[in-house]
């Protein structure tokens, strides 16, 4: 049986925006419900603060970044400190930020469907990356 790595997921840390909240919720759903045994979380602030464990994992194993907006902080930071993320997911590809309800920056309401879609996409990509790993 061949080795299948866990996939690191790095989510946006935009606190005061709905896209950031959606990205985190989707990431948590994938991490804890959809693919709990196939994924690990990589803490973006810890990653930025220089934690070697987080950075070396992302250098070696496949990663998926989940950004809340087109500024792509998670993807850019991962590329700068480790290596290019294997997959870059952007919430704005699923829902234009302008259409998102600003009240949901703290608690998800009607964006639950978007969260669901992104979480499923994360899970699909996790499966693909593990399948293609050599």
């Amino acid at each position: 049986m061949s080795f299948k790595p866990k996939v690191g997921i790095i989510s946006c840390s935009g606190e005061d925006c709905t896209g950031g909240n959606i990205s985190r919720e989707a990431t948590l759903k994938a991490l804890h419900e959809l693919r709990p045994n196939e994924t690990v979380t990589i803490c973006l602030p810890l990653f930025l603060a220089g934690d070697e464990g987080e950075r070396s994992f992302a250098k070696t194993f496949p990663t998926i970044t989940v950004d809340g907006c087109n500024k792509l902080c998670a993807a850019i930071s991962t590329a700068r400190f480790s290596s290019d993320p294997s997959v870059k997911i952007n919430v704005e590809d699923y829902a234009e930020c302008i259409s998102l309800n600003p009240k949901e920056k703290w608690r998800i309401g009607e964006s639950a469907t978007v969260v669901e879609h992104i979480a499923e996409e994360i899970a699909r990509q996790v499966d693909r990356l593990r399948e293609e790993w050599e």
């Binding site: 946006c12 840390s13 606190e15 005061d16 948590l28 979380t41 803490c43 973006l44």
Partner: peptide, 29 residues
């Protein structure tokens, strides 16, 4: 976001932002 302290910290920021218009919530990234 996947740590208890992070979740509680975010809750606190939400309360502070709701109660005080002079509060801006920052982002590490």
């Amino acid at each position: 976001y996947d740590r208890p302290g992070g979740k509680i910290g975010r809750e606190a920021a939400e309360i502070l932002a709701d109660e005080d218009l002079e509060v801006v919530v920052g982002s590490v990234a």
